[in-house]
Write a protein that binds this DNA or RNA. Sequence first.
RNA 1: GGUCUCGUGGCCGAGUGGCUAGGCAGAGGUCUGCAAAACCUCGUACAGCGGUUCGAUUCCGCUCGAGACCUCCA
Length: 493
Amino acid sequence: MENNLSVYNTLSRKKETFEPLSPPHVGMYVCGPTVYGDPHLGHARPAITFDLVFRWLQHLGYKVRYVRNITDVGHLENDADEGEDKIAKKARLEELEPMEVVQYYTNSYHEAMRLLNVLPPSIEPHASGHIIEQMSMIRKILDSGYAYTSGGSVYFDVEKYNNDHPYGILSGRKVEELLATTRELEGQHEKKNPFDFALWKKASPEHIMRWPSEWSDGFPGWHMECSAMGTRYLGDHFDIHGGGMDLLFPHHESEIAQSVAANGQMPVKYWMHNNMITINGQKMGKSLGNAVSLAEFFSGQHPLLEQAYSPMTIRFFMLQAHYRSTLDFSNEALQAAEKGLQRLMAAKETLRQLAPSHVSSFEAFNLKEWKDKCHEAMNDDFNSPVLIAHLFEAVKLINSIKDGKSMIDQENLEILKDAFFTFVDDILGLRAEEVASAGQESLTGKLIETLIGLRQEAKLNKDYAAADQIRNKLAAIGVILKDTKDGTEFFIE
RNA sequence: GGUCUCGUGGCCGAGUGGCUAGGCAGAGGUCUGCAAAACCUCGUACAGCGGUUCGAUUCCGCUCGAGACCUCCA
């Protein structure tokens, strides 16, 4: 297995050659959604980013165990004493059981992922199902001396940890600076230092989601779940940990501290972070009120949207930018992506039907080199936009062969088909849209075929007025006709 | 305020110390009854000001501008 994969590691701020800890196995953990709201465009970015990573690693022959969690407990509303978690709050508002809320939004997340053609992870653990693992990890941290109890809660002792290990190794922060910049919040009196974070929180009386523990009836702090579940399924030291850049600090920084304190070693070899989606240049976020849900994108029902955008358009739009760049949303950009995707998918269909000639007529375009360039693009820190640029070079070639302006022999056609289908379908995960096609056999299909036949007759009689009338009237009800050299095709908008 | 990132042609978006990214839009052409599609040709972009260099969009400094994190967030 030849391997020239380089991965940008946030820990070193450099691209590094990817060398798994125990090949051919790769362990990858990615922070999943907090299921207390409809999945929005922001959720799609990390899901698609690490789907691409997952697919490429598998393509290279690695046996990947991909763990992506469901956060269904433990995220505090804020870091103060009220300690109300998001799931519980939502449950109270809607008068539902917390787990009913969790199930509802987990389902809608899964449905959105399915539509976006995001492969399911190998394991999708729930935080609420791993309270025991979290408690035992807290116990280990207490035993190692890097945590203290206070008022029924357990806090991580950042200052003490920082004397022995660098706190800030991932995010580049310094404890002294944190001290200067941390805000004075209410209810900090339980902590030794304001930057200490909770490992276990004692639940207030109105708090619904709670578990008994040796410290109090309460719930785990919001960095614990990823540390505990990552360790549980991937071990004390695994290959890749991914997530959004916004999680870099304090979430991932604290995960490192927790793992080092509990297990005595750095938990992760490669930290990968996808960048944010912006909307009008501003970060898209639920709290900013500018988050557009994926369902709204698919239906077009949102004031910011000029039209509906299909799941594959969204996916292609994201893959056209590198995962470490911010990506600015706009109708214009999405419409451009939609058209580009249509051209790519049309070429795929054309390629499927292409017949070989005895010779190839293109010297300048070496298909083996082209295939290698596609491969190199992905090996260069998963550079999907460069891969897509290469694929469009092939689109031109495919179309010119179809038009009879170029010829391709059997051997080259095999190379082209194999590589094009592999990269478009398997790596980028772009598939034909799920459209309710009329089909040749349905009554609708037969009716349209009949009208096409009538129009054909009109054309033969040079009655173009009648021919155009049929085409225009069909277009008015969403049936688009396209004349090709092999006859008339139709598709339904 | 602290830490950090970014500023590329009409829009989106790669990349590089000297050699065409790509997509969308636009202009011209070929093809077609027309339309659509497709193909060909076309834009010499890299915030500003200095510096390093034979040469910088790419390295360094400053200025301006935008954004992220420091607080729940993918």
